[in-house]
Amino acid sequence: MTATTGSAGGAATRADTGTDTTLEVDNLVVDVLTESGWATVVDGVSFDVRRGETLGIVGESGSGKSVTCLSIAGLMPPRQTRVRADTLRLLDHDLTRLTPKQMSDVRGPTISMIFQEPMSSLNPAFTVGDQIAEVLRRHEGASRRESRRRAVELLDRVGVPSPARRATQYPFEFSGGMRQRVMIAIALACNPDVIVADEPTTALDVTVQAQILELLREIQREHGMSVIFITHDLGVVADVCDRVLVMYAGQSVESAGLDDLFEDPRHPYMEGLLAAMPRMDNPSEALASIPGHPPRVGAMPDGCRFHPRCRYAADACTGGSAPALELVAAHHTTRCLRHAELTLRGNP
């Protein structure tokens, strides 16, 4: 890929600016326009992503993982979304101040996304090569011929066999795993600083998932980019992430380094998630489940949003505003009032 490192920035050149944090998010709030007015779907998410690391974002469906990342990348529909934050910084760009047009220029060379369903993110009417080339032409002003050549190189890099021939084919001619490789090639095209992978392997078979995870690992090692990996599978988290952010009901409730979080969870929700994962290597354990359901948007409980499902909930947890995020150890935060009194069970 060295040959394709673009002049319009990229991980290598950005490293010179000296900062170690590629993305900084503090108190992100996202409102979305629904039929019954504005609803707050993300309400207080804070995290940062350092250069070259993989941050996992975990949580159940509807916890706001995807909306968080789409908002950061400026990919939510602008008229139906309000994004606010105390800090929202991507490299040296203050994202809260960018217009949609400016954001669109910033996006390609800095942040790109890989989605769960590659079939719906690829245009069925264009060849795969054209779709990669388009990104290069849009963001780097590459010529038609140059962008085609680099599209083939990128396909080769992501492990698509006979890339020159495959570049002339349409998405329907690719298997699910191969389509995901094409998506990764598109995401890589401008050599971004951050790649957001939103459940990129959820729709794939396990053996293909293993191939794609391996590919992402390799690419990250080569380019030193940051990866935000959204998933609900704690096995995948244990396999690829360095640090983890746990989300519940639109809020970040815990964040820590991978081993810390699994060995010593400090939020009852994370303890519950760990206990609920069926383990192939430990089948005799009964499958625990967290009782009840996550709250609906617009019907958030008072106090700690997890309290109606929490086995440790005390009176103090049930009223007032949500507990604040507290630092409980180095690089380990939790949003639980009782964290100091509780001894939670992990899964080292």
Binding site: T207, A210, E214, D233, G235, A238, L258, L274
Partner: peptide, 25 residues
């Protein structure tokens, strides 16, 4: 190969497991 491809939700165990990555679809 199928079993080795399933990631286990435990960082320590996962790091020490042998992974057999099958080639191709």
């Amino acid at each position: 190969a199928l079993l080795s491809a399933v990631p286990v939700p435990s960082p320590k165990t996962q790091r020490s497991r042998e992974r057999i990555v099958l080639s191709g679809d």
